[in-house]
Computed example of a mutant assay.
Amino acid sequence: MGSRCDIRVVADDGEAARLIAAPAIAEVRRIENKYTRYRSDSIISRINAAAGLSVVECDDETAALLAYADRLHAASRGLFDITSGVLRKVWDFRNSRLPRSGALNELLPLVGWNKVVRGNARVFLPMRGMELDFGGFGKEYAVDQAAAVLAEMGVEHGYVNLGGDMRFLGPRADGAAWSIGIQDPRAMANTVASLPISRGALATSGDYERFIEVKGRRYCHVLDPRTGMPVSYWRSVSVVAPLALTAGSCTTIAMLMEQDGLDFLDRCGMGYLAIDQQGHIFRRTP
Rank of each mutant, 00 (worst) to 15 (best):
172 R>C: 12
154 G>S: 09
90 V>E: 04
7 I>N: 01
228 G>C: 08
226 R>E: 07
72 L>W: 05
4 R>W: 03
24 A>T: 11
104 L>I: 15
28 V>D: 02
209 E>A: 12
258 E>Q: 14
198 S>H: 05
108 L>M: 10
22 A>Y: 08
75 A>N: 12
31 I>Q: 03
78 G>W: 10
237 V>T: 04
181 G>M: 07
272 Y>V: 01
284 R>W: 02
201 A>M: 09
44 I>D: 01
35 Y>F: 13
9 V>M: 05
93 F>D: 02
226 R>S: 05
281 I>R: 10
193 A>C: 06
189 A>H: 15
197 I>P: 10
258 E>Y: 04
77 R>D: 15
144 D>F: 06
243 L>V: 02
88 R>L: 08
279 G>A: 04
140 E>Q: 03
171 P>A: 15
275 I>C: 08
282 F>A: 04
33 N>C: 01
165 D>M: 08
74 A>W: 03
15 E>Y: 06
219 Y>N: 01
251 T>M: 12
255 M>A: 13
167 R>G: 09
285 T>A: 11
216 G>N: 09
155 V>K: 10
70 D>H: 07
119 G>P: 00
7 I>P: 01
14 G>C: 06
49 A>Y: 02
32 E>Q: 13
80 F>I: 11
23 P>R: 13
16 A>F: 09
127 M>S: 13
10 V>W: 07
177 A>D: 13
153 M>G: 15
167 R>W: 09
283 R>H: 02
125 L>M: 04
66 L>N: 07
208 Y>C: 03
219 Y>T: 00
115 K>A: 11
130 M>Y: 00
224 D>H: 13
275 I>M: 15
